[in-house]
Computed example of a mutant assay.
Amino acid sequence: MDIPIMITFEAGLSFLGLGVPPPNPSWGHVLRVGYLNVRAAPHIVVYGGIALILATLGFTLLGERLRDVFDPKLQRGGEI
């Protein structure tokens, strides 16, 4: 479950200008545009950052839950 790491990595590359081209949507590009215009529109950085955090946190929690459900070594009530 490396989805959160890949999302953050792609956003970082796009923020630096090394990711997907600008017509394609990317959280890193949104954060870069917001960073460049932070005095005029700080909400772009805030909402873009919150969306990025919620996506990575959501995938992390989903991965942890799936591991708890499907990992036979972590069965509850049994011996480890």
Rank of each mutant, 00 (worst) to 15 (best):
M6W: 11
P22V: 03
L57A: 14
R65E: 08
D2A: 15
G34W: 02
G77V: 01
G34F: 10
L13M: 15
G17K: 10
W27I: 06
G34A: 03
G28M: 03
F59L: 03
Q75P: 06
I3D: 10
M1P: 08
A41M: 10
P21D: 01
G19A: 09
A41N: 15
F15M: 08
G48P: 15
E79R: 13
G12S: 05
P21F: 04
D2K: 12
F15K: 00
R32Q: 08
I3N: 02
L74I: 08
G48Y: 00
R39P: 04
F59T: 13
A41S: 13
K73C: 11
L18H: 07
R39M: 13
D71Y: 02
V30M: 14
F59Q: 03
V20G: 00
R65K: 12
L62S: 04
Y35R: 06
L18D: 04
I50M: 15
V33F: 03
E10F: 00
V20N: 05
I5V: 14
V45K: 07
Y47Q: 05
V30P: 01
N24H: 13
K73D: 14
M6N: 10
R32C: 05
E10K: 02
G49M: 04
M6K: 10
R32N: 11
D2L: 15
L57D: 01
L62H: 07
T60I: 07
I80Q: 11
Y47L: 14
A40F: 07
G78S: 08
R32E: 07
K73V: 10
V46L: 15
L54C: 10
R67Y: 07
A55T: 11
T56S: 14
R39C: 12
L54E: 02
D71V: 09
P4Y: 13
